[in-house]
Design a protein around this nucleic acid. Structure first.
Lengths: 207, 207
DNA sequence: CCGCAACTTGCATTGACTGCAACTTTGCAT
DNA sequence: ATGCAAAGTTGCAGTCAATGCAAGTTGCGG
């Protein structure tokens, strides 16, 4: 059914067969859902269809994703590179909180390459379907914890700012950056967009 | 079944019987869902239960709310007072964009009294159930359009800032304000919290 | 009191999602 | 290789949210 675009071993760097198969299936499911949604529209696509396309039982589908929408969005836990995280906690590349947030954003957004093409498709779908955007935002919010821990560590106990506010701001940056990146047709490095966003916020707030 | 806490006519200011009944039912459904969720937990509560509690058909339930979660959240389209909106578009109370955002926030949050008690219950539930928080955020995002129009009008064609960025910032403010208000146990005027949030953002960005 | 429009309701249906128990595959050690 | 345990897959049966449709009810204006 599925043209094996992703060869089993084409997917992950190292690790056992089990891992690879799993990752491959996961991507296959995501891609299949994208294809089908593009063709039939989000609501017309059923889990069954996606499974048929990939050749997997519907029951299995839910071993991979909690919901249909999660598959379309291809969500997986965020994880930003150790190095970036450590640097940020230690006082960040620049020492200026806001600027360092940019690096965090870049780390979060640009880091994991489940393929940036895939990511663009995801963003486009999200932009088209409010429900998906909803899920997307909600998911970002869930990742907040993780980020907030970093912020907390960096600020230390004698925090001049409330960590949750900082985090909230960070999430806006991420979101705005992604939207710009998408609006720009996926052109340019994420960093440029992130920088632009922060610059604009600065201008806006000091106005 | 339901102790008629809200008398029919206790609910809305004017208008015909039809309207009043509708509003009353709406609130009854919301309250019933709150009661049931508090007792059994979100996932254990079915639409049927809620309906039984209020004495309406399940089918009717969906004439009032698109989803079960919407009922719990008691969402209805935002509408900020004409006056506030007009003032903002005209250049806002203070003329400083960021400060005027505060007023917008207050207008949005404090304006509609479906009862602030009800609102607190809602926020608490949202805080407890990630899925609800997701819906809540998603819903806020959907209202964005409305707000963004205002921002666009105020900024005019020669916009110094991208409206969507401003709006994004506004939404963070709303969210942060609500969270603080809730964290404070519903104490104090919304405006105080909103002001605090903005002040902090300022400090944070100019640091 | 009549008739329209607004609502409500039951019925039937689809499709997401879950728990369970059996079955298959992979990883690993002998 | 061979065998075993853990990891993963699948079918089945069931619950529940959500929707379209076609008939009832009911508030409202004349």
């Amino acid at each position: 059914m599925t043209p094996p675009t992703d060869d089993l071993d084409a997917v992950p760097p190292g690790a056992g067969l089990r891992e690879r198969k799993k990752a491959a299936r996961r991507l296959a499911l995501i891609d299949a859902s994208h294809r089908l949604v593009a063709e039939h529209g989000l609501d017309a696509v059923t889990v069954e269809m996606i499974c048929a396309e990939v050749g997997v039982s519907p029951r299995t589908f839910f071993n991979y994703f909690a919901t249909k929408d999660d598959a379309v969005l291809g969500h997986r836990p965020w994880s930003l590179p150790e190095k970036t995280a450590a640097a940020f906690v230690a006082g960040g590349p620049s020492g200026v909180l806001l600027d360092d947030l940019v690096d965090l954003v870049v780390g979060l957004v640009a880091a994991p390459p489940p393929g940036s093409a895939r990511m663009r498709r995801t963003l486009e779908l999200a932009a088209a379907h409010p429900r998906l955007m909803a899920h997307h935002i909600a998911w970002m919010d869930r990742q907040k914890e993780q980020v907030e821990r970093l912020v907390r560590e960096r600020l230390g106990p004698a925090a001049a700012h409330r960590p949750d506010t900082v985090t909230a701001l960070l999430l806006v940056c991420v979101h705005a950056t992604l939207m710009r990146w998408d609006a720009a047709g996926g052109e340019g490095h994420v960093r440029e967009h992130a920088t632009a966003v922060v610059a604009e916020l600065r201008a806006l707030i000091t106005a």
